[in-house]
């Protein structure tokens, strides 16, 4: 156990987050966010997604700059492998979301983190997307995340951190629950 009296600093502004929670309860319209990405085909299975604008707090918002992601398929799919497969980006998003949650919860609970590593695996039967077996779904059959966390906390407290981060994770929710998705042509 740590005996230091230095304040816990995981680089998370807990006070701001708790303040936002309380403020948005009073003004719930501001809590309605819309996230956006635009995408453009490059060639073959290669595409490029740009993320810059979003809506929230009752107004249009903007990242500090435009962020660019790319998607492609690997050579075993007879593609050129310019970028990760989109399903891998989904796994990366899950890890990013849960890790942010671990940091935020640790800050709120006064736990100093030293390192937080995660490994994510998703099992996928590709006969589904290939149309090779009508009984196989297109998406993941199973997703596993393993965290390796070094922190000033007991094993039980670390388990509770990881459990709480799942409870408050948008990507975990998006993967584990059905979501209505509409795709149309402009």
């Amino acid at each position: 156990m740590s005996t230091t009296t230095a304040p816990v600093d995981n680089g998370v502004n807990s006070d701001a987050l708790l303040g936002a929670r309380d403020a948005l309860r009073e003004a719930p319209a501001g809590a309605q966010f819309t996230w956006r990405a635009t995408s453009e085909w490059v060639r073959g299975t290669h595409s490029r997604q740009t993320i810059e604008h979003f809506r929230g707090l009752g107004d249009e918002q903007k990242h500090k700059k435009a962020f660019v992601l790319e998607g492609d398929h690997p050579e075993v799919f007879a593609s050129e492998d310019h970028a990760p497969t989109p399903v891998e980006t989904v796994l990366a998003a899950l890890a990013g979301c849960l890790t942010a949650g671990v940091a935020a919860v640790a800050q709120n609970r006064g736990i100093q983190l030293r390192s937080v590593k995660a490994t994510v695996e998703g099992d996928h039967d590709i006969l589904g997307i290939l149309g090779g077996d009508p009984e196989v779904r297109n998406g993941f059959n199973d997703v596993r995340v393993v965290f390796d966390i070094d922190a000033d906390a007991s094993d039980e407290d670390i388990a509770a951190l990881v459990a709480q981060s799942q409870k408050r994770s948008a990507v975990f929710d998006a993967l584990t629950n059905p979501t209505n998705v509409t795709v149309s042509v402009a």
Binding site: V143, A159, A163, Q164, Q166, K167, F172, D173, L175, T176, N177, P178
Partner: peptide
């Protein structure tokens, strides 16, 4: 329960964490 649609009830895949909590 996440959704009931077309005669099918769908459930969250987060059960393990729910019981862990």
């Amino acid at each position: 329960v996440g959704r009931i649609h077309d005669g099918v009830a769908q459930f969250s895949g987060g059960l393990a964490n729910t019981v862990r909590l």
